[in-house]
Amino acid sequence: MIRAEGLSKTYMSGGQPLRVLDRVDLHLEPESFVAVVGPSGSGKTTLLGLLAGLDEPTEGTVTVAGQNLQALTEDGRARFRAENIGFVFQTFHLLATLTALENVMVPMELRERASRETGRSIRARAMALLERVGLADRASHYPAQLSGGEQQRVALARAFANEPRILFADEPTGNLDRKTGQRVVDLMEELNQERRTTLVLVTHDVDLAARAHRTISLEDGRVVADERNRANPEEGRAAKRDGRSDNEPSGPSKQGGP
């Protein structure tokens, strides 16, 4: 689903080049749930940004669903995101001036032309998503009128609005208390499985990372560990065919590294 080759990113900081990512190679399978972990400044968010086509690498390539992102213009990448990618942010980033329902409708409206979907159908689908995250009764509320957990659930509904092939989540529980965070992650996993989305999660939270099928650890811009915690659904199905159990981890393996 996602393939990164020799991915590097250098920023200028105080007139000096600062290498934030250093020759990262990755391959993420479809429908996998991958956690990217690492200390502050290790390059997690930069990696997420590059994989989602939010920025251009200094070196290397990113191919998502067969599409080389570097071959696209900025607007081309935006169109690609509208079609294929969903986002969940640490600070929710709901548009403050839009209601919960309108926030969920935004991605659908952005690909209105491609999908030839009517306004009514968009509204209905958005409403269904809000219902799915348990917030149908809060549809007309503005973000400021919602709690943090509710905001993140709206953000989840928005992220799944276009049934993306990949969901990027940047510290989705970072601004929530443990219990609320837990519920949000549960919901995210459910949606991920329901809609067979590839989920890439950046987090500090070890427990949260442990729920992923695979954990990629970054340090100083390099992959220092790549562990498989448990089989992803695709692997699970393959394992069943091979006579293995669904919960049996595929075992730690090292990949990349310094």
Binding site: A52, D75, A78, R79, R81, F87, F89, H93, V106, P107
Partner: peptide, 15 residues
Amino acid sequence: VSVAVLRCLGALQGT
């Protein structure tokens, strides 16, 4: 930030 979020969601610069 709103503009950046919209860009993440796939909104074009021109839009």
